[in-house]
Design a protein around this nucleic acid. Structure first.
Lengths: 192, 192
DNA sequence: GACTGGACCAAATTCGTATTTTGGTCGGAC
DNA sequence: GTCCGACCAAAATACGAATTTGGTCCAGTC
C-alpha cells in the first residue's frame, strides 16, 4: 500500500511536468528529455513508470477526462430533476473540456497521435454513457421523461453521447460558440 | 444567352473532369495540368474560366452542396407533417453527404485547403438554415411544434444547423454509424 | 527495490542544397 | 471568344549528410 502510494506520487509528478511542457511545445514537439528535465528526473525514470511516450500522453489525458467527469458528476448531484441534471452534466462537461483543451492545438497533433486521441475519446464516451444513462434512468423512474421507454434508454444515451462527442471534436476544429451549445442542450431536452 | 449557356457548358465539362481527378488523387495532389488533361483542354483554358485552383475546388463543392440541397428539398416536399419533413431533410442530407464525400479524404486535405472548406461549409450551413427554418415555420403555423415560439424559430434553426454541421465534420474524421444519426434526429425531434 | 545516469543504437527527423514541378500570366493563333 | 504553349517565381520535392529522438539496458547508488 505504501509502495503503491509512492508509485502514484511519482507518476503524478511526472504527469504534472507533462502537462506543463505539452502545453508549451505541443505533444509532438515535446521530447522525453524535455519531460524528464521538467520533472527533475532522469529519462530512465520515465521509462521505469511508463512504457513509452504514447503511454505518458494517454495517462495524462485519462486523468483529465476523469477529473472532468468527477466535476460534472458533482454538479449533477446538486440538481433536483433529471432534466436539470442532464443539462448540468452536459454544460459542465463542455465548459471543462473547453478549458482543459484551450492551450493545446489538437487539430495539428491529430496526425501523429491519432491512436491515443481515439482511445481517450473512447474513455470520454464511456464516462458520458455511464452518467447520461444513470440520469435517464432516474428521469424515467420519476416519470419526468415521457418520450422514452425503458428499452430506449440505452439508445437515447447513445444518441446524446454521440452529440457530445461530435461537439467535442468540433472544439478541436471549428469554433462553436457557447450560446449555441446551450441551444442544442435545450433542444435535446425539450425537442420540438 | 447562348454564349452564357455555352460558358456554363464549358465550365461543367471542366468541373466534371475535376471531380474525376480529385477523387483519384485528392485535392492537393491534383495539378491544374491533370485537370486540363482530363478535360481535354489546355491549362490556359482553365484560367479563362476560373481564377485559380481554389476557385475550381470551390465551384465543384458548391455544385455538390446545391445538388444535395435540391435533393433534400424534393424529398421534403413529399412529406405531410413538418416533423416528417425535418426528419426527411436531415436524413437525405446526411445520406448524400456521405455518398458524395466517400471517395475523398477531407481530413487529410484540411491543412492545405482550409479556407475553401470553410467557405463550402458556410454555404452548406446557409442551405440548411433556409430549409430548416422554413420547415419550422410550417410546423409552428400548424401547431405541430409545441415547444417553440415564433421568436425561437431562428434560435432553434441555428441549433439544428449546428448539430448538422457538427455531425458532418465528424464524417470527415470519425465514423458515425447510420443508426446513430437516426437516433439523434429522433431526439432532436421528440426531445426527452 | 526504487531510482537513475549514461552508453548505445536504429529509426526518425532536420537541414542545406540542387532540381523539378506547379500555379499562374500573357502573347498570339485560330 | 477560345485556348495553346512559352515563360517564370515560388513552392515542392529529392537527396545525402548530420543530428535528434524514443527506447533499451547495464551498472551503480541509496
Amino acid at each position: 500500500m505504501s509502495s503503491l502510494s509512492k508509485d502514484d506520487r511519482a507518476r503524478a509528478g511526472i504527469l504534472q511536468a507533462d502537462d506543463s511542457v505539452f502545453q508549451r511545445w505541443g505533444l509532438t514537439k515535446t521530447t522525453m528529455e524535455d519531460i524528464a528535465r521538467e520533472a527533475g528526473k532522469g529519462k530512465s525514470t520515465l521509462y521505469y513508470y511508463f512504457k513509452n511516450k504514447d503511454e505518458v500522453l494517454e495517462a495524462l489525458a485519462h486523468i483529465q477526462v476523469a477529473r472532468i467527469a468527477a466535476l460534472a458528476r458533482e454538479e449533477t448531484a446538486r440538481k433536483e430533476t433529471a432534466r436539470e441534471q442532464l443539462i448540468a452534466y452536459v454544460y459542465i462537461t463542455f465548459r471543462e473540456i473547453r478549458r482543459t483543451m484551450a492551450p493545446y492545438d489538437i487539430e495539428r497533433e491529430m496526425g501523429s497521435h491519432r491512436a491515443v486521441i481515439d482511445r481517450v475519446l473512447a474513455k470520454f464516451d464511456a464516462e458520458n454513457e455511464k452518467a447520461v444513462e444513470s440520469i435517464l434512468r432516474l428521469g424515467f423512474q420519476r416519470g419526468e421523461f415521457k418520450s422514452i421507454g425503458l428499452r430506449d434508454i440505452k439508445a437515447t444515451t447513445r444518441a446524446i453521447v454521440a452529440v457530445i462527442r461530435s461537439l467535442t471534436l468540433n472544439l478541436f476544429i471549428d469554433n462553436q460558440d457557447k450560446q449555441l451549445i446551450d441551444l442544442i442542450i435545450a433542444l435535446l431536452s425539450e425537442g420540438l
